[in-house]
């Protein structure tokens, strides 16, 4: 199953490498969001630094929406999802593979946005190893949760007119707990609020586990003659 999943993930990433849609559209969008936040907060350095965790994660979620839409759209082109179904690969593997590809792209986006907030917003991580570890682990776990939920909800909108408007209203409420958890966890890492980030990380982990498991179980239902 894992081998098939890797195959699917490599297929999606190869399509991305050749089409460069995420690179040429989603990445600039993510940076634009950071710039817009600065305009909205009137270039107030202190406010930007205080709210960096929240702004960072909102930017990640918006960019993630685009990346997920792209991952869904490539299945719609040339009836790829039908071919995948005919290939005999288990739907769970397809789910896992697509989620892995989205997750890889999200991680790259997160790294980029982190560099962005360090430069634009003067963000500073507490100089302890634990704060740095918290930052990295939160980014990874949140990416897993977002990509699993996103892949599942993305599949719900395959082959539908108005897909672009449907996905956000389905997915954003679902991702609300991720936004809360990841923001609080980053608050700890950046030292912008006295909270226990590791406790919040467990919420993110719970979310990720729930959606990976649910996706593995439910993806087959969605793939049937859709």
């Amino acid at each position: 199953m894992l081998r098939d999943a890797v195959l699917i993930a490599r297929k999606d990433l190869r399509i991305e490498r050749r089409s460069r849609v995420v690179l040429s559209q989603v990445v600039p969008f993510a940076i634009l969001v950071l710039v817009l936040f600065a305009f909205a907060l009137n270039a107030d350095r202190q406010a930007l630094a205080d709210f960096t965790p929240g702004l960072f994660w909102v930017a990640v979620l918006f960019s993630a929406l685009l990346a997920i839409q792209r991952a869904t759209a490539i299945e719609g082109i040339d009836a790829t999802s039908d071919s995948l179904r005919l290939s005999g690969i288990d739907p769970s593997s397809i789910f896992l593979g697509k989620a892995m590809a989205v997750c890889a792209q999200l991680l790259a986006l997160e790294v980029l946005l982190l560099v962005g907030v360090f430069i634009f917003y003067d963000a500073e991580v507490d100089s302890s190893a634990s704060a740095f570890a918290l930052l990295v682990v939160t980014a990874i776990v949140a990416a897993i949760g977002v990509s699993a939920a996103g892949t599942l909800y993305g599949a719900l909108t395959i082959g539908v007119r108005g897909q672009e408007t449907l996905l956000p209203i389905l997915l954003l409420p679902v991702l609300a707990p991720v936004l809360i958890g990841a923001t609080r966890s980053f608050d700890d890492a950046f030292g912008s609020a006295a909270v226990n980030g590791w406790a919040w990380l467990s919420l993110l982990a719970l979310f990720a586990v729930v959606y990976v498991v649910f996706g593995l179980l439910a993806y087959g239902i969605l793939m049937e003659e859709s």
């Binding site: 909800y153 679902v174 609300a176 707990p177 919420l203 719970l206 979310f207 439910a218 239902i221």
Partner: peptide, 22 residues
């Protein structure tokens, strides 16, 4: 019907998670 059913069940799973996180 299939897609709706999956969402309805996923949303119900979300009830405790949302509640807990908030």
């Amino acid at each position: 019907a299939r897609r709706s059913a999956v969402i309805a069940i996923a949303s119900t799973i979300m009830i405790p998670i949302v509640r807990y996180s908030v």
